[in-house]
Simulated scan of single mutants.
Amino acid sequence: MNPAAPPDRKDQHLDIVLAGQGRHARDAGFDRVSFVHEALPDLDHDKIDLGADFLGRRLKAPLMISAMTGGPARAEAINARLAEAAQHLGVVLAVGSQRAALEGGAGGGLDRTLRRRAPDTVILSNIGAAQLTRGFGLDEARRALDMIDADGLVVHLNPLQEACQPEGDRDWWGVGAALEALILKLDAPVVVKETGAGLSGRTARRLIDMGAAAVDVAGAGGTNWALVEGERARDEADRIHAAAFADWGVPTTQAIVDVRRACPEATVIGSGGVRDGVDAAKAIRLGADVVGQAARVLTAATLSTEAVVDHFQRTIRQLRTVCFCTNSANLAALRRAPLRPAD
């Protein structure tokens, strides 16, 4: 098993994202489409149903607080606030990587206190696919689930980040086979997600055929982890290498469309550069079942639970107004709302 990550790397990641660095050079694509406005809606704004089904559970809104992390001291406070907000809002909480905690390092608040803060909502554990050929397997996945009493496991795919990270795991030979074996043996749903470069329809089809319970497209347009690694690199050659991938990946909107087309029956999470409730509505219209946000809520998560709740309540209000102005009484109707190319 590889040694644990340097203790300051996660804090470096957090500082870079909070500073607004590492943003993708390519936009997520939400500004390329617009809803057709309905000037005469035939429904009550306050009775619009934003509920969504996810992994056999009913959410109050189709939103996921996507994986965030940081050094142990900050991560503990951030995770506590995110869990409390998820409980209050009735949305999904997906935690950051549990690798350090599984290897015996500080847990960053990733223990059963998280479930006590969010007893009623969906919580997802998180490990990296690259570790599945480096000593992580079924036992570690079960420990990750048990550690926070999670409802399912996220396995994240980050080949671009690993290739640009000075200490990255670049040997991915056999990772796909190891992932499939884990999905087949683990007695919990497995969600597979990219980390900002997007899933192709072909890869998503492969993952669903493996038995993945859901896929998260995590498209280009939000945080670009190649650039984040470039920002923290000490070697100029590493910086230059990472900079070449500033616009790499499948934009979020295209990824959602491609994945939905390839996997019409799948549960699809749309994330990557989702700015607000209007973008969330567009993601749902294009084929997402649930919409994730990470970097956009990170500043609020460093402040308070109330700040996180306020952020998502704004998003939910905007999503509801989109439904109102497209005459969509629920998310099923929103998926049929007419779209047009933006001017």
Score class of each variant (00 low, 15 high):
S125V: 08
C164Q: 03
V192M: 09
K282I: 14
P41A: 13
P166A: 12
M64A: 06
D310R: 15
D27T: 12
V92Y: 01
A181S: 15
C325S: 13
E180V: 12
G29V: 00
I123Q: 02
D27C: 06
V155H: 07
D216Y: 02
I256E: 00
I65T: 00
A218G: 09
H241Y: 14
A5C: 04
G107F: 00
P62R: 05
G90P: 03
L179V: 03
T321I: 09
L334I: 14
V278S: 08
T252E: 03
R202I: 14
S304W: 00
D235V: 07
L157I: 11
E236C: 01
L157C: 04
L138K: 06
I240Q: 11
G56M: 11
Q254T: 12
W225Y: 11
G272I: 02
L199Y: 06
M210P: 03
R314G: 11
T305G: 07
I208W: 05
L40A: 14
Q131A: 12
I269M: 02
R74I: 03
H45N: 12
H45V: 11
A25H: 10
D279W: 12
G20I: 08
R202M: 11
A86Y: 00
D209F: 08
A243Q: 11
G198V: 06
A214K: 03
H241A: 12
R9H: 08
A329F: 12
S125L: 11
G230Y: 01
G128H: 08
L132M: 06
F324W: 15
T267R: 10
Q21E: 15
L43A: 14
A226H: 04
S328C: 10
E180H: 13
E76Q: 14
L124A: 05
A77M: 11
L179F: 02
P341M: 13
G270I: 06
C263L: 12
S97F: 09
D238M: 09
A283H: 01
I316H: 02
R81V: 00
T69K: 04
H311P: 01
A226R: 07
P341S: 14
A25R: 09
E265S: 13
L14A: 14
G211K: 05
L339M: 13
G109H: 03
A19L: 12
A213D: 10
V154Q: 13
D139V: 14
L110F: 01
S304C: 09
I127L: 14
N330D: 15
N158K: 07
L14R: 15
V17R: 03
T113F: 02
G292W: 00
K193T: 03
T195A: 15
T315I: 15
V175D: 02
